[in-house]
Design a protein around this nucleic acid. Sequence first.
DNA 1: TTTCCTGT
Length: 310
Amino acid sequence: MFHKNIIYIAQLSSVGLVGYGLGQYTSKFKENRDENSLIINGKTVRNMPGLPIFGTVSAAAPFTDSGTTKDRISQIMKYGFPSLDNVRSYDDFVLSYDRRNRVPHWVFEHITKAHIAKNDQVDRSKCDFMPDDSIHPFFKSQNSDYKGSGFDRGHMAAAGNHRIAQKHVEQTFFLTNIAPQVGEGFNRHAWNRLEKHVRKLTKVYDNVYCCTGPLYLPRKESDGKSYVKYQVIGANTVAVPTHFYKVVVGEAPDGSLDMEAYVMPNQKIPEETPVSSFMVPPETIERAAGLLFFDKLHRSKLNRINGKKL
DNA sequence: TTTCCTGT
């Protein structure tokens, strides 16, 4: 499988090279323990906080497989990283992994017409959900955590957004890109409609930038106090988010930029509910998630937020 | 169509 080609350069690089397929004991050596590290295709390219990420890449770890990987990541992350906690990059999306909750903090995609065009070479049914062995066993989710839980393994970067290559769609099935979602009425319906809406934006915008992730929102209980309460599933106690968000920016052919932001509760949603009814101010999501979206995008360049002229 | 599940 392609993920076995990944070479880990960590503190114990020789172990990382030899340790493949030897199970959980050796895999713990592959985890990079530096919170501020950035791993690009399995290579640690940055482990000093505060250094410019892409300025450091070429000096620290020259890419042997041409410069295209770096270019693609720069393109996906053009408008900034929402945070820098356990960043992982794949061929067509980038994510930050939440080791405490065993789901992503955020997943970033850059989507164009070409990425979602019909492609007979790409077959979703050939894909399998799989654990990402670049995550330390303490923090890694497994298929067994989801089995029998009653929750779907819901994609954050949607499989349907990565149809340029079979390898790309396969990588969306890494469990680092997955969170527990209510299946009936949510993942398979309302959330799927939101994903389709985002794909449709490529008809209007040349470039669509999409950030997706979970939320754990407080709820007032009968004692009048607010609590954050969420279920955990499986032996690895994977968190079941209370809500999910999407923050999307579209770049029009004339260069103008529009933003849309959505929050949906992780529950059965009535069929007739329009996608637009889940729009929220992006700042609400930033405050709730502890993230800053499109930080490098000057707000003065934004034409509209949630369809409203600024 | 795309999102998944379980049972065989």
